[in-house]
Design a protein around this nucleic acid. Structure first.
Lengths: 187, 187
DNA sequence: CATATTTTTTAACAATTGTTAAAAAAGTGA
DNA sequence: TCACTTTTTTAACAATTGTTAAAAAATATG
C-alpha cells in the first residue's frame, strides 16, 4: 500500500492537488511497541499506515478499551484533537514495526481554506471516519462477542494470531477469560 | 432554534454562501409518530430539527437499537445513505410533532463542488457527526447503563419524561426491565 | 367517569459474564 | 537447552442482566 494510493482511495484528486498534499507529507518509521499518538496531547499530524499494525485505545483508570486495530491503507487520526485542536483521548501504539506517512494538521487546514478539491478530500476523510465508527458501534450493539470474533477471523485471519488475546478481548468488549472460553467453544 | 442558527453553528458561512444553502432548504412539519427517514431507502435529504423530538434507531429482527434522540438544533442524517448514496440502515421517526428543514442531498453535493466555504461546511458537518458517534461509542464502552441514565437525566431532564422507557432502555443498551431496576435503585 | 389500552414495575428463575487464582502453554534470552 | 517471563487456558464462585409472566400504574378513549 503506497501513500498516493492511501490518499486517492479517500477521494480522487487531480494531479496538481494531489501533489500539494504529497508535498507536505513525511515518511516515518516506528518500531514495535512505541507510542504514535499520546493522550492529552494535541495531535500535530494525521497519519497513513502503509506497513505494520497499530492499535487505537482509550486508556481509563483500571479499564482500557481498544477502539480499533489499524492495518496498511488505514488512516489514523486522534479524532477530537484533529477536529477541535484540543487534547485527544486516545493512545495509538505500534504492535509491529511500522511505516507511516504523516501530514501536519496545521498545513492541512491551510489547504482546506485554499483548495476546493482538498476541502472535499477532507470532507470525505471525515465522512469515512464517521462510517468506520458507526460500523464499530453497530457491531457492539447487535453482534455477540463470539460473532464479532468470528468476523475478525474471516477478515483478518492471519493477523489475529499476531495480536495479543487481551487486546482482542478489549476490542470485543469482553474479558480475556471470556474470549478464551469463546475460542474453546469454536474448536 | 432557527434554521440559520443551525447552519451557522456547524461552520460559519459568509452571507452570500449562507444564502445559497438557505435557498435550497424547505421547511416541513411532521406529526408525532411519523417516519421521517425509512430504512433501505436512499435518503434524498438531510434535516435540521428546530422543534420536537426524533428518535434514530436501527431495526433488526427481534432486537432493535436506538442510536440517538434528536432535539432542536440537531442535524439528522442517514449516514451511510448520505455518504455513499446507497440505501441506509436507520429509521428516524418523530416522538412529538416536529418542525424540520431539509436540504436535498443532490443539490448539496453540487454546492460542494462549486463553493469552497460550503465544501468546508460539509467537512465540518461530517466531522461533528464523527465526534457525536464517538461520544456515543465511548459512553457504551466505559459507562454503566446506570451512569448513562444519570447523564441523560441531568442533560435532558424534562425531556426524559416524554420518552418511553423502552426507547431509553434501548438507547442505553439494556432491557426495559433492567432500566426499571435502575430507577428503583435511584429513588 | 368508567373502561380499555398502554406503559411501567416487580418477582422468580435461568443464563451469561466477570473475578480471582492457579495451571498449562508459548515465547524469550542467556 | 534450560530457566525465566509472558500469554493463554481452565476452574470455581459471585454478580449482573436477560427472560417470562403477572401485577400495578398511568394514559387514552368513548
Amino acid at each position: 500500500m503506497e501513500l498516493v494510493e492511501a490518499i486517492q482511495q479517500i477521494y480522487a484528486l487531480p494531479m496538481d492537488e494531489l501533489d500539494r498534499l504529497v508535498r507536505i507529507t513525511e515518511r516515518i518509521q516506528l518500531e514495535k511497541n512505541n507510542i504514535l499518538i499520546d493522550k492529552d496531547k494535541t495531535a500535530k499530524y494525521i497519519y497513513f499506515l502503509t506497513e505494520g499494525i497499530c492499535r487505537i485505545y482509550y486508556p481509563k483508570e483500571q479499564k482500557e478499551a481498544v477502539l480499533d486495530f489499524c492495518f496498511p491503507g488505514d488512516s489514523i487520526l486522534s479524532l477530537n484533537s484533529y477536529i477541535h485542536g484540543t487534547p485527544g483521548y486516545e493512545i495509538v501504539d505500534t504492535l509491529e514495526n511500522c511505516v507511516l506517512y504523516r501530514i501536519p494538521v496545521s498545513k492541512l487546514q491551510r489547504l482546506y481554506n485554499q483548495s476546493l478539491p482538498i476541502a472535499n478530500w477532507g470532507r470525505k476523510l471525515a465522512e469515512l471516519e464517521t462510517l468506520k465508527i458507526e460500523q464499530r458501534l453497530m457491531q457492539t450493539l447487535f453482534k455477540t462477542a463470539a460473532e464479532r470474533y468470528g468476523d475478525l477471523l474471516t477478515k483478518e485471519a492471519n493477523v489475529v494470531q499476531r495480536i495479543k488475546l487481551g487486546y482482542i478481548a478489549s476490542y470485543l468488549g469482553v474479558t480475556q477469560v471470556t474470549l478464551s472460553r469463546i475460542r474453546a467453544e469454536i474448536k
